[in-house]
């Protein structure tokens, strides 16, 4: 988003710096350096998984930087009977931008921007290949819907990378409550038995209620199924396939060079940006889950191939260090819990 307007002289100063040899940027980073990234998971107590991420936060006074909050919330949906649910559950992603992040944008322009970001995040994360296996509750009856909401609190550039990293962290943090399906079955005599039809996680015990048989039972429906939440000390099991969520790397292109993690002024000086959504070491060593160009520059097919190759390298770095950070966060939270 070339949101801030900058003068022609500033633009050419930034571009000349990137193309210079050795290249120089306003803050002394090299072309492929990221700003410092701060990450925290489990920030929203009422969500099933959440993360807060900030790129380029000033460590001294905590000001500045791109800040994104992402949270995943699970809801139960009916399948069929007017319910929106789908077999096996579904995911819906929304990105909203705080007006404080874009004070110069009108509310219409802000809506457009949110819509663009929502589309990119939603199309990438709701793809079939990424679908987590454990979002189903009752076959043909009920399923979880996972709402992933990301809020851009402040934009100092490189917001797409931030949104995807925050989304990955929030989904990594997501716990799906354990459910146990139960079936009520009308006995041929008229009584009802409650038993475990199938077990989904947790070791359910058979509890059979012998009810008083009523001779006046005229119910037509022979069986009823529902689910219950067994009490467990933890919030549930992690969302399946959580290693697969992609990371995004934005290549800012100033022909013939490119650079990463642009600040807002650098973005304004960049005619073309390429977003690559990649995941690694899921069955395949590298999988490209999405690709976008933003801006009005143009690229040849050969350049795209080159950029993909370069992007893969950067994305793998992001992937590795993000994974390490997420594991560390998990460890820290386990440690905190063991204090009690």
């Amino acid at each position: 988003m070339a949101s801030t307007s900058i003068s022609k002289a500033e633009r050419s100063y930034i571009q000349a710096g990137i193309l210079a040899n050795p290249p120089s940027r306003a803050d002394g980073r090299s072309l492929y350096d990221f700003r410092n990234i701060a990450l925290e998971t489990g920030v929203a107590p009422l969500a099933n998984g959440s993360a807060r991420l900030s790129i380029g936060r000033n460590p001294h006074d905590g000001s500045g930087g791109t800040e994104v909050l992402a949270a995943a919330k699970l809801e139960v949906e009916n399948i069929g009977d007017g319910g929106e649910g789908v077999e096996g559950g579904r995911i819906s992603c929304t990105v909203s931008c705080s007006p404080a992040a874009y004070p110069h944008l009108s509310s219409n322009a802000l809506d457009d921007l949110q819509y663009d970001m929502t589309t990119i995040l939603n199309e990438t994360l709701t793809h079939r290949v990424l679908h987590p296996p454990n979002l189903g509750i009752l076959r043909g009856k009920k399923a979880w819907v996972l709402h992933l909401d990301a809020v851009v609190l402040y934009d100092e550039g490189n917001v797409y990378d931030a949104v995807f990293m925050a989304a990955r962290a929030a989904l990594w943090d997501t716990k799906v409550p354990r459910t146990r399906s139960v079936e009520y079955q009308a006995k041929r005599k008229g009584g009802a038995t409650k038993g475990n039809a199938e077990k989904e996680g947790g070791s359910g015990d058979m509890d059979v209620d012998e009810e008083v048989v009523s001779g006046f039972d005229t119910r037509q429906i022979q069986t009823a199924t529902d689910f219950e939440l067994p009490d467990y000390w933890d919030e549930g099991e992690p969302l399946g396939g959580r290693e697969n969520w992609p990371v995004c790397v934005t290549l800012n292109i100033v022909q013939p060079s490119h650079f990463l993690d642009a600040t807002q002024t650098e973005e304004a000086a960049t005619p073309l940006r390429v977003l690559l959504m990649l995941a690694f070491d899921t069955p395949y060593p590298t999988s490209v889950l999405g690709m976008r160009t933003l801006g009005n520059g143009e690229l040849t097919a050969a350049q795209i191939a080159e950029l993909l190759k370069a992007g893969e390298k950067y994305a793998r770095e992001i992937w590795t260090s993000l994974n390490a950070k997420l594991k560390e966060e998990t460890m820290n939270r386990l440690k905190e819990r063991s204090k009690f």
Binding site: Y32, D33, N36, I37, A38, L39, S321, L322, A324
Partner: peptide
């Protein structure tokens, strides 16, 4: 180069 930190407590 990329590095992650935590938010201050």
């Amino acid at each position: 180069m990329i590095s992650f930190t935590s938010f201050p407590s």
